[in-house]
């Protein structure tokens, strides 16, 4: 009983602090950073990052010069993952150490609201990397385009149709052009475009506060670098 109460208080606290962090953030002044990582497996605890890509944007506009892409020199077991993203051992061997890419990413993580399509997996992988590299603990705010899509879909469907919330299908639904899949940078770019289109779909304009999306549960905060009890 007490445990439950505590849990609720904690969630409330988390919720309210998210609201606080979102105050003053509007569509036209919020720096967004869409990130995508390609992984060795879908198991959050055991996965390693094989490549990472990101792109920054704000208010429906993005500068292509902010696009970054790193192939990570990992020795982890790749499992079946090369089938998906095409990154084989040979390619990875020529990659950069994970620390180099995260160094570059670090300053952007705290100044921007992060954008993911399926945030939980990508965040878990980043978290694992933070811990392994003993990077300082930081708090980030994120938007999950998958959750935004699911929110819209659940208004029409009791049970979501299979594959109705993949990045590609979500983009198709909003008339965005098709693009190559499973490359971290392309997926990041595709995700931020999807978010722009979703803002439009949710009726947000340039002066809308970001907190208008709180009810969709697509906004969240996350502590990177701390062993999380889940």
């Amino acid at each position: 009983m007490i445990l439950q109460w505590l849990k609720r208080q904690l969630t409330l606290a988390a919720g309210s602090s998210l609201t606080k962090q979102l105050s003053g953030r509007y569509i036209n002044n919020t720096d967004l950073l869409a990130i995508d990582v390609e992984l060795t497996s879908l198991d959050a605890k055991a996965t390693d990052i094989t490549s990472i890509g990101w792109v920054a944007g704000k208010g429906g506009q993005l500068s292509l010069s902010s696009c970054e892409y790193f192939v990570i020199n990992t020795s982890a077991a790749l499992g079946q993952s090369p089938v998906i993203h095409g990154l084989t051992h040979d390619i990875l061997a020529q990659g950069k150490p994970l620390a180099v890419s995260l160094d570059k990413l670090m300053p952007l993580l705290q100044s921007s609201v992060l954008v993911f399509h399926n945030a939980s997996l990508d965040l878990a992988a980043l978290n694992k990397a933070f811990i392994e590299l003993s990077l300082p603990v930081i708090d980030v705010i994120y938007i999950d385009t998958l959750k935004l899509a699911v929110y819209q879909l659940s208004k029409q469907h009791q049970v979501l149709p299979t594959n109705s919330a993949t990045l590609t299908v979500c983009r198709q639904r909003l008339d965005l052009p098709s693009c190559p899949e499973h490359n971290a940078l392309d997926d990041a770019l595709a995700t931020i475009q999807l978010l722009f289109a979703q803002f439009e779909q949710f009726g947000l304009d340039q002066t809308s506060p970001l907190s208008q999306l709180l009810h969709t549960k697509a906004l969240g905060k996350y502590r990177l670098g701390e062993t999380q009890d889940r």
């Binding site: 292509l64 970054e68 892409y69 190559p180 490359n183 940078l185 770019l189 595709a190």
Partner: peptide, 8 residues
Amino acid sequence: MTAIAKQV
């Protein structure tokens, strides 16, 4: 160095 997305 800036990377270039394939779709672009």
